[in-house]
């Protein structure tokens, strides 16, 4: 029973750590499916994390904070869109620039506003997303096996976690069951065909980049207002790149994105609990190995040793109507 509880706690923190990865991964999925590479996920998350925490700290209302975070992320998305769609610039270079812009500006503004060495004040009360206890969670806690599962694992997360998980079926439905989704995927494979059909390539790509901005905004807000209580410098800590890795790992598919981010979330959870691995497999695993594992696995997938990851065909190519 004790072992079971430990396992549940481990899975619980897996879910917690997987949530920002999942949101960012889905964000990248929309963008890359529409043919816009986005290595600026990290920067957008970071900007959103700062503005959510800052505005939540000032207003005392986390929902206003969330909106501010999404807004900040959307501004960076717009820059990426203008650079890579309107001016047909290099999407990768634009992404790099956005990451640096966010890394620098967040600290600069944090210092100017709060004067606490590049962090926001700690969020309290309504300034944070509190865990939600689902109905009957406490009443059913006594039921063997399922009771604790419901109480520990499924109940007791912040609203954004449920939003992230709901975004998976929604994304699948939007991309694979609607006209918009068909067009969005087509614009990432063969924009000329979409253009011939009389649908705006530029409009679709901006829509995809916009959705990407919204999801990155939620991911960033989750980091600073739910996972932690406030913004600290560089708090996204490479999660945008792990999400990018998960996206490749999932081969640009929504349900697989969920599995990939849960797996990478589990690595993260295990990194903080080395004692559990030692119990399970009877030997010590270095934390650094676990930290590197998502990247190593992605390289192996990319190398095509375990099934081939084929990106959307028009990815990274600016669309030129007339040559």
């Amino acid at each position: 029973m004790d072992m079971y509880l430990t396992l549940l706690q481990l899975l619980d923190s897996t879910v917690r750590l997987a949530t920002p990865l999942l949101l960012a991964c889905l964000a990248g999925l929309y963008s890359e499916r529409a043919g816009i590479f986005d290595i600026g996920l990290e920067g957008k998350m970071l900007a959103a994390a700062f503005f959510s925490a800052a505005i939540a700290a000032i207003t005392g209302n986390v929902w206003v904070g969330l909106m501010a975070g999404i807004g900040a992320s959307l501004v960076l998305s717009a820059i990426h869109g203008i650079a890579s769609i309107t001016f047909r610039g290099n999407q990768l270079i634009s992404g790099v620039a956005i990451n640096f812009l966010a890394a620098g500006l967040t600290v600069l503004i944090a210092q100017a506003w709060f004067k606490q060495g590049g962090r926001t004040p700690s969020l309290i009360g309504n300034g944070r997303f509190e865990p939600i206890t689902l109905p009957f969670a406490e009443a059913l806690q006594g039921v063997p096996i399922l009771g604790p599962l419901y109480y520990e694992l499924i109940s007791g997360h912040s609203i954004l976690v449920y939003v992230a998980f709901a975004a998976v079926p929604f994304t699948w439905w939007l991309l694979f069951r609607t006209r918009f989704g068909l067009r969005l995927r087509a614009v990432g494979e063969n924009p000329a065909a979409v253009d011939t059909a009389g649908v705006s390539v530029v409009g679709l790509r901006f829509a995809a980049v916009g959705i990407c901005g919204i999801l990155c905004g939620i991911a960033g807000a989750y980091l600073s207002t739910a996972l932690q209580a406030g913004f600290v410098k560089d708090m996204s800590a490479g999660r945008g790149f792990i999400a990018l890795a998960a996206l490749i790992f999932a081969k640009w598919r929504p349900w697989h994105a969920l599995y990939a981010t849960l797996l990478f979330g589990l690595f993260g959870a295990l990194e903080t609990r080395p004692d559990i691995i030692e119990q399970l497999i009877g030997m010590k695993v270095q934390g650094q190995l676990l930290a590197a594992l998502p990247y190593v696995m992605t390289v192996i997938i990319l190398a095509g040793f375990v099934g081939k990851a084929i990106p959307p065909r028009a990815g990274g190519e600016p669309y030129v109507k007339e040559r």
Binding site: I79, S84, F87, G89, N90, S94, A97, G104, V107, L108
Partner: peptide, 19 residues
């Protein structure tokens, strides 16, 4: 971090927004 911002702007304007 001001330098990081300047660096980002240089990359943005000389790289991505070249056109």
């Amino acid at each position: 971090e001001l330098i990081v911002v300047i660096q980002a702007l240089v990359i943005l304007f000389t790289g991505a927004l070249d056109n």
